[in-house]
Design a protein around this nucleic acid. Structure first.
Ligand SMILES: [Mn+2]
Ligand SMILES: [Mn+2]
Ligand SMILES: [Zn+2]
Ligand SMILES: [Zn+2]
Lengths: 146, 146
DNA sequence: TGGAAGAATGCAAAAGCATCTCATTTGTTG
DNA sequence: CAACAAATGAGATGCTTTTGCATTCTTCCA
């Protein structure tokens, strides 16, 4: 039995009903190994180019969207420009982003999650999803000076 | 002495260091009177057209951006397409959006606000802003059926 | 009150991000 | 390994937002 936390592989792609192609394998591998963990489609494109894999940007967008539908990947809409993708390891979390250097950290807070449910209930809503992102300056010295 | 809750006027535009022009006055008035309170630049464009004011879309984007810089207006990046603007009445709040009909409701929760500060502190961040949006189905009968 | 100086507007063109089209290539299956 | 369906790549396209520039308005003071 394998959980979401294990290493992804061609099986995950196959199980999503997709053919195991070189672009898909490379993109999935990159998401796993990626330093920052949170990358835009263009980041993926450039990182793969650097790695000698010339995969079209359209393919990257297509594949990331397919991975998202399959639950392998999560898409975030942080402020400013592009969507950001990360591997879905099955554990929901929210983000805090440095508006100076772009560093992204993750957090999960049950109290915040619970309050959201209560607020939704009060208003008669059924929660399907939520997006919480805190923006600020990280501890990095260079980011401190406003 | 006038607070943020009062009616906006040409003075607000002047105080922002901007000339009091017809487009600016009309856009500000529309934001005040708008039913939903949360409108896209194109919404503003069409609503003004309906009202007989033919103001260019580029001007609307420019003016909304200027109003934002001046603190008169807040911009939100809800999922899907366009940015959404609303008059800044000086009281921070977050949003819950119906993914079926688009209805937007507002809420403010001190507990959530406090937890965010604590989380930021733990991570060594200084909070500058945050965006929390809950997505779900509203109480409207037509929105219930998934 | 008139008119100079600078700011704002409208239009069209451009930019940025994401998706689509379609000819060609690749993966899968028997 | 052939045959078919699915996927890819390159460029076109779509949509939102921004920008350049000639023209029009505001402001302000002589
Ligand atoms: Mn994350
Ligand atoms: Mn609001
Ligand atoms: Zn930083
Ligand atoms: Zn609804």
């Amino acid at each position: 039995m394998r959980g979401k936390k294990d290493m992804m592989s061609g099986d995950d792609i196959r199980n999503a009903g997709l053919k195991v192609t070189l672009p898909r394998v490379k993109i999935l591998a990159l998401l796993e190994q990626s330093e920052q963990g949170h990358v835009s489609a263009e980041d993926v494109y450039k990182l793969l180019l650097d790695a000698g894999e010339d995969i079209g940007l359209a393919t990257i967008y297509r594949v990331l969207t397919q991975f998202e539908s399959a639950g392998l990947v999560t898409r975030h809409h942080f402020e400013g420009g592009q969507s950001v993708f990360e591997l879905d390891r099955g554990e929901h979390h929210d983000h805090i982003v440095c508006i100076k250097c772009g560093r992204v950290e993750e957090f999960f807070d049950q109290m915040i999650e619970d309050r959201q449910q209560e607020i939704a209930k009060e208003k008669g809503f059924t929660v399907e999803a939520h997006a919480l992102t805190i923006y600020g300056y990280c501890k990095n010295a260079a980011c401190r000076a406003s």
